[in-house]
Design a protein around this nucleic acid. Structure first.
Length: 561
RNA sequence: GGGGGUAUAGCUCAGCUGGAUAGAGCAACGGCCUUCUAAGCCGUGGGUCGAGGGUUCGAGUCCUUCUACCCCCGCCA
């Protein structure tokens, strides 16, 4: 719709250039946007305001000339000049009603586009090390990251989702020692408990499964417990598999899938870590100091240089991070998005600096990052700080078990990633109008319910007649819905482009609200057949868009509630 | 001390990359079910957009200074 209007305006501008009103080299960076107030029409443009200066005319005067130069169009029924010089466009009934036909024709694909043109994008998120169940922070990452993948896929990108983890570092040794201590019957209170050991109850479960010789089938590995408390290596392997499976179950309960699990240890085994060091050294970007090998990241915008190889010989996490991203680049992902907690913010500059130092032709701002802020969980007005099993944090699974997948996903994805999030368990649990998840789902169920009701009466919705009678949709509430539906593809496109899934949630809240308002103000199943069929067509279009939008958020769209 | 984020109604948050009278939900108050699902709808009240300066036709939005809160600043990940 915007494109059609833009083309019309462009024609008018061309004509004004020809007439000498506008200079030929005017930079037309005007906007066309949807109006909030119906009195301002359906779409408005600031073109006259922006071009007033170069035209050396008053904005309103220029607006009039643009209006007079507009070609006749079946799309626009009326153009008004308002305020300081806005052009307000009123769409013709035909063009505003056409969206219903389009939604019903395109179905699940309505809202999809080909922006991405099949280009490959890799999205890395969650990336929790296998040292415990996922916590709510991971949950936010999972909700945002997964929704982002769905948005990118819907806008024509070839998406590859990835979970990166370390199965061999110091944290994992720590994990193995903790499990071993449990195998020996020790608890966190014992003096012999490993320093910085993992204290959660789940460690006890890992230990008893290991001792019982259970076999663990995780997404990416399968291990059987050896039962030998002295074999730390066997314990390590078993514990990693156990917690990977644990996280798989968390993710499954959350409805999140990954195309690939990438191991940090694989980068060592393949020699990529070593090759990365050599390349950085050869490039002359390193130096030795205090027995350690440093990378001069300050040459690429970092505020201090970073250690790559510790004086004791091991590498810091920074180096495999760089090697991993080089690997992503070499796999041909021209676009990479890393979704992480904002507490990892400091790695952004560092990784980018390391990649620049490689001199591998990687663009400066590559890769993209989406950083989400902290999540706090509230219950009864007080902050919940820990779960029994996990020990020191709130487990994602606890939340899913308590409030359900839909509510958990919705609340974690519905806020801008940059804002700190307060997860109110009481609100998520409430089955009332307090709860936006149910509010949206209810609108969907209502749409389904009307068709069921009609069927109960032994009648059915005449789709064709409905589409032929769209001109019967003249109520103010119906116009508002038509306009809102027409906006959906733009919402999806901009949410994908800006990596902001939460705007889909906001849109759905508004669409559902307008649907409920309409539903209460006007009866759909009226005697007047053409009107009934037209209204059902509108209702179906709304239902379809809600279903499509919820799908992007990973939230279900129930037929009845 | 340095870097990043945030600051909008009593509370939780939107605000479409600078537009017209700043919005929604909750909470408060008052209405609507013999009629398609009341998990809904309608109405009322509620604001110095943290503070000061600047940029311009026009600023919640951009720049700058300051204040408050959160995160990071390790040869941990």
């Amino acid at each position: 719709m915007k494109e059609q209007l833009s083309a019309i305006i462009q024609q008018a501008l061309d004509q004004l250039v020809e007439a000498g009103t506008l200079p030929a080299d005017h930079a037309a960076s005007y906007t066309i946007e949807r109006t909030r107030d119906p009195a301002h029409g359906d779409l408005a443009s600031n073109v006259a305001l922006v071009l007033a200066k170069v035209a050396r005319r008053k904005p309103r005067e220029l607006a009039e000339q643009i209006r007079d130069a507009l070609p006749d169009s079946s799309v626009v029924s009326q153009v008004e000049i308002a305020g300081p010089g806005f052009l307000n466009f009123f769409l013709s009934d035909d063009s505003s009603q056409a969206v219903v036909r389009r939604v019903l024709e395109e179905g699940k694909r309505f809202g999809c586009s080909s922006q991405g043109q099949g280009r490959r994008v890799q999205v890395e998120f969650v990336s929790a090390n296998p040292t415990g169940p996922l916590h709510v922070g991971h949950g936010r990452g999972a909700a945002v990251g997964d929704s982002l993948c769905r948005l990118l896929a819907a806008t024509g990108w070839n998406v590859h989702s990835e979970f990166y983890y370390n199965d061999a570092g110091a944290q994992i040794t720590n994990l193995a020692l903790s499990v071993q201590a449990r195998c020996r019957g020790l608890g966190p209170e014992d003096p012999a408990w490993p320093q910085d050991g993992y204290r959660g109850e789940y460690i006890r479960e890992v230990a008893s499964a290991y001792l019982a010789g259970e076999t663990i089938d995780a997404e990416d590995r399968h291990v059987t417990g050896q039962g030998d408390s002295e074999d730390l290596e066997a314990i390590r392997e078993f514990a990693v598999a156990y917690l990977r499976r644990e996280q798989d179950l968390d993710l499954k309960a959350f409805g999140v899938h990954f195309d690939e699990y990438f191991l940090e240890s694989a980068l060592y085994e393949s020699g990529e870590v070593e090759a990365t060091v050599e390349r950085l050294v050869a490039g002359g970007h390193t130096y030795e100091e205090d027995g350690a090998l440093w990378l001069r990241t300050t040459a690429f915008g970092d505020d201090k240089d970073r250690v790559m190889r510790k004086s004791e010989g091991g590498y810091t996490y920074f180096l495999p991070d760089v090697a991993y991203h080089l690997n992503k680049w070499q796999r041909g992902f021209e676009r990479v998005i890393n979704e992480q907690g904002a507490d990892h913010h400091s790695t952004v500059t560092r990784v980018r600096a390391g990649l620049q130092a490689l001199e591998a032709g990687i663009p400066e701002g590559w890769p993209d990052y989406v950083l989400h802020q902290m999540v706090t969980v509230m219950r009864d007005g007080a902050e919940v700080k820990l779960s029994k099993r996990a020990g020191s944090y709130v487990a994602l699974r606890d939340l899913i078990d308590e409030v359900g997948r839909d509510a958990t996903r919705y609340f974690l994805v519905a806020r801008a990633p940059t804002s700190q999030l307060t997860f109110d368990i009481d609100l998520a649990l409430s089955q009332s109008n307090d709860n936006p998840v149910y509010y949206i789902q209810y609108a969907h169920a209502r749409g389904c319910s009307m068709l069921r009701k009609l069927a109960e009466q032994g009648e059915e919705w005449q789709t064709t007649q409905g589409l032929e009678s769209l001109d019967r949709l003249q109520e103010e509430h119906e116009r508002a819905l038509l306009k809102r539906l027409d906006q959906y593809p733009e919402v999806v496109a901009s949410a994908a482009q800006a990596c902001e899934p939460h705007s889909v949630a906001n849109y759905l809240r508004e669409l559902a609200g307008e649907f409920h308002t309409w539903y209460n103000a006007h009866k759909v199943l009226v005697e007047d057949r053409p009107l009934r069929d037209a209204r059902l067509a509108l209702s179906e279009a709304v239902r379809q868009v809600i279903a499509n939008g919820l799908e992007l958020l990973g939230v279900s769209a129930p037929d009845s509630m």
